[in-house]
Nucleic acid binder design. Sequence first.
DNA 1: CTTTCATATATACAAATGTATACTAAAAAA
DNA 2: TTTTTTAGTATACATTTGTATATATGAAAG
Lengths: 200, 200
Amino acid sequence: MKDLTHTQRMVLGFLKEYLSKHGYPPTIREIGAHFGFLWPAARGHLKSLEKKGFIRINPSRSRGIEIIGASYPERKAIPILGRIRAGSPEIASEEIDGTIKVDETLFPGEGLFCLKVRGESMRDGGILDGDFAVVRPQNTIENGEIGVVLIGDEATIKRVFLKEKKVILKPENKEMEATIHEPSEVTILGRVIGIIRSRV
Amino acid sequence: MKDLTHTQRMVLGFLKEYLSKHGYPPTIREIGAHFGFLWPAARGHLKSLEKKGFIRINPSRSRGIEIIGASYPERKAIPILGRIRAGSPEIASEEIDGTIKVDETLFPGEGLFCLKVRGESMRDGGILDGDFAVVRPQNTIENGEIGVVLIGDEATIKRVFLKEKKVILKPENKEMEATIHEPSEVTILGRVIGIIRSRV
DNA sequence: CTTTCATATATACAAATGTATACTAAAAAA
DNA sequence: TTTTTTAGTATACATTTGTATATATGAAAG
């Protein structure tokens, strides 16, 4: 996607702000008035934004500006799992401790779930005790990614390496040692695609 | 809140559907056309919906229909600021790079904003490059909390200590040194109350 | 050096859109 | 019964709003 000029970025910012404030987009004249220039100039910026793919202008419709990608982000509730039952890919409702609602755009994908992080084992990787880890369920994982792994009955978050047919689970903490496992011992539940921390 | 008639409920439903589909509300004529009756009838329904408190009609504004309550349910958009202008407590629209929508319950408070973290200075505190820091604006900060501080023209995130009438800004990174400032040199913009990280 | 693009003013015009009023009719409320 | 609310049709009008074009300047690109 092409770069925006300063003015174009400002106009796009105003569009988003106006939209979230009023629930409908501004008119071309309102945009011009906000920035202090005459409105035909605003139209030029809108045309540029459309050409660069940031917005869509519906011809002849008043306020017919759609912000592409962010128009009306579908919000989804991500369930927070207190415990993970061995071998169950689907989420049982009794395991849901609550939900967190976040932008679809921020964490895309289906079937996401959250885990509350316990312990300091991933501290050096920027994952602290009490954080919520956003997990995308998947059966395999790329070498070196942070995954949610089930060992026996317990789910842990570790950086996962695959080496010589062994699974190496490496904590991001200098005081802790990596553990080596047979592939049959561990089950990959998913990849950590995000962290949400609240320290209110 | 008063009950709606069948037609009114239908109209309200269409409003929500149209809004989520297009990103902007329908015109009165579009509402009428959708239901097959002439548009002045639709205006009557809108007036009723407004009187009963379900929508707000902005006079003389095209598509100026706001759905009260239901449209933006218990969710707030937190603006992402690209840069922070010195000395301006209020948020200028040209500085908004986008928004993140999260639960009110997760990050309560008014006037929150987000900053995209740059650099490794808070790495050991679990704040990584590229994270979004959720900031609650406030003028003072408790000793040892993580704050957003303006030095000159630049905003940085540091752990803030107040000691012997000096302000100590301590990076959470063993390779970096704390800096000591006169209180007049620094402006406390807010406290970091959360972190959102997306590594999709 | 010429062309293009970004930015902006100024103006004319057509289309879209909201406002208002008159009228009818059935159902609900007083 | 009488009045109010709901639900329409029909029409006129003013305002809002988008479209288009001519003009100009400075910066960037070729």
